[in-house]
Design a protein around this nucleic acid. Structure first.
Length: 287
DNA sequence: CTGCACGCCTGCCCGC
DNA sequence: TGCGGGCAGGCGTGCA
């Protein structure tokens, strides 16, 4: 999926066209994504004002006037694309040219202002569900998530405690959403490279100092990626259809065999598989 | 409890 | 050109 920076970029793109607007109509074009849509989703969304869009980890939370919240997850390949009505030759008169739904357009929100938001997800690992807004944090998709990496609860003391007594490689620990919520394969690889820590290092063997060094490194890489509009690989687009460009800043991800970018390091980037997923790192400067 | 393999889906890219 | 295999940003389940 899009990881935290991509989801945050999507949220920021959607907020100006959705917040404060009413969902005139919701079109659900298939019965499910990863799981069945909730009962009566289209009717429960129609006529509801979007109070605000929030993000928790890699989930977008859409708070509605009805007191319900629409939880959206983009899975691996989900996109939210905005179609804006076009102004005709008469100033102030807008015309909505309905683009024919494309392959894998599964859900379409039509807002009162004529803007359409299309959820497209080829692999259908994405999900949507509705719950009461004040119960959202207890929803089963969100209940066991760890702290936000950009929030105050994610600090040096927390990470040291979380790593203690854990025997797993640090790569898999950081991918564990219960430990910290929102990192994925790309940003874990990038953060470990910045911290000069081997993805194979066992968490409990790391010194407090090295563990602590990861906290600002994780924050920095996520914030820089958000600033860049996220990373665009095969599927991801910002909500306005633009590409993010953080992929040009990758130090290790997807760079197998290429030179390490650490100053004065003459290493080459290796690819290994951990827990069935590719890990990219430099054996020379990551220990 | 932990750690890991697997399945869910489609599309793309590479080698033959 | 076609086909098979491997790969892909996630996450829940089930097993040891």
């Amino acid at each position: 999926m899009p990881e935290l920076p991509e989801v945050e970029t999507v949220r920021r793109g959607l907020a100006p066209v959705m917040e404060g607007q009413v969902i005139a109509r919701a079109e659900i074009r298939r019965p499910n994504l990863r799981w069945p849509f909730p009962d009566g989703m289209a009717q429960r969304l129609a006529g509801q004002r979007v109070l605000r869009l929030r993000r928790r980890s890699k989930y977008i939370l859409c708070d509605l006037g009805s007191g319900e919240t629409l939880i959206i997850h983009l899975g691996m390949s989900g996109r939210m694309l905005i179609h804006t009505p076009e102004e005709t030759s008469t100033p102030g008169v807008f015309q909505h040219i309905h683009p024919a739904p494309e392959k894998h357009d599964h859900v379409i929100f039509e807002m009162d202002n004529g803007v359409r938001i299309v959820f497209n997800d080829a692999r259908r690992f994405g999900a949507m569900d509705l719950c009461l807004t004040d119960q959202a944090e207890f929803h089963k998709m969100l209940a066991s998530l760890g702290p936000e990496p950009l929030g105050n609860a994610f600090d040096e003391a927390y990470l040291i405690a979380a790593f203690k007594n854990r025997g797993s490689p640090i790569k898999s620990a950081l991918l564990d959403q219960k430990l910290v919520a929102g990192l994925g394969n790309i940003y874990v690889c990038e953060a470990l490279w910045r911290a000069h820590i081997s993805p194979e290092a066992k968490t409990k063997t790391l010194s407090a100092k090295r563990t602590s060094s990861l906290v600002p490194v994780i924050r920095d890489v996520l914030l820089e990626a958000i600033e860049s509009g996220g990373s665009s690989l095969k599927d991801y687009r910002q909500a306005d259809g633009e590409l993010g460009y953080f992929q040009h800043s990758f130090a290790v991800y997807g760079r197998e065999g290429e030179p390490c970018r650490t100053l004065d390091c003459k290493g080459k980037i290796s690819r290994i598989v951990q827990s069935g997923r590719s890990t990219f790192f430099c054996r020379r400067c990551q220990r």
